[in-house]
Deep mutational scan, measured.
Amino acid sequence: VTVHVNRYTYHFDNPEEAEKFAREMAKRLNMTVEIHGNTLKVE
C-alpha cells in the first residue's frame, strides 16, 4: 500500500496501518484522504 503526502511517498505492508497513517497526516495538515485502490493520497 502506498501513501502519498505532498511530494513524499510512504510504503506500508499493512493496509490498516497505511490508512491510520494517512488519516493522521491528513488531520495534522488539515487535508483529506483519497483512496484509489492500493494508493492513498493526502490532498
Rank of each mutant, 00 (worst) to 15 (best):
L29S: 03
N6R: 08
V33D: 01
E34M: 14
M31T: 13
A26M: 04
A22Q: 01
E24A: 13
K41L: 14
N14D: 14
M25N: 02
H36R: 11
K27H: 11
T39Q: 11
N30R: 05
K27A: 13
A18G: 10
E16A: 12
T32N: 08
M31V: 09
T32P: 05
K41V: 15
T9A: 09
T2Y: 11
V5N: 02
L40Q: 03
N38R: 05
K27S: 11
T9G: 03
R7V: 06
Y10M: 03
K41T: 14
M31H: 05
A18D: 00
D13V: 08
G37L: 06
T9N: 05
A22E: 00
E19Q: 10
F21Q: 00
G37S: 04
T9S: 08
H11P: 02
I35F: 12
E19F: 15
V42Q: 03
V3G: 01
N30F: 05
T9C: 13
E34W: 10
A22Y: 02
A18Q: 00
M25Q: 05
V3H: 01
Y10V: 04
L29V: 03
N14Y: 06
R28W: 09
V3S: 01
F12N: 00
H36S: 11
Y8Q: 13
E19S: 07
N14K: 07
R7A: 12
E34Q: 15
A18S: 01
K27Y: 09
V33H: 01
A22K: 01
E19L: 15
T2I: 12
H4R: 11
D13C: 14
T2M: 08
F21K: 00
L40M: 12
E17R: 06
A18I: 01
K20N: 09
H36D: 12
T39I: 14
K41P: 04
V42W: 03
T32Q: 10
V5L: 08
V3M: 01
D13A: 10
E16S: 10
K20R: 12
V1R: 05
P15Y: 15
T2E: 07
E34K: 15
I35K: 13
L40T: 04
H36L: 11
G37T: 05
V42F: 03
K27T: 11
N30V: 03
R28N: 06
Y10A: 01
V5D: 02
V5T: 03
M25R: 02
H36E: 10
N30W: 04
R7Y: 10
V5E: 01
M31E: 02
R23E: 07
E16M: 11
H4C: 15
I35P: 03
K27M: 12
L29H: 08
K27I: 12
L40W: 09
E17P: 02
T32D: 05
A26Q: 03
H36P: 01
E16L: 11
E24S: 10
R28Q: 10
R28L: 13
F21V: 01
N30A: 05
Y10C: 07
E34G: 07
A26D: 01
K41S: 12
T39M: 12
V33S: 02
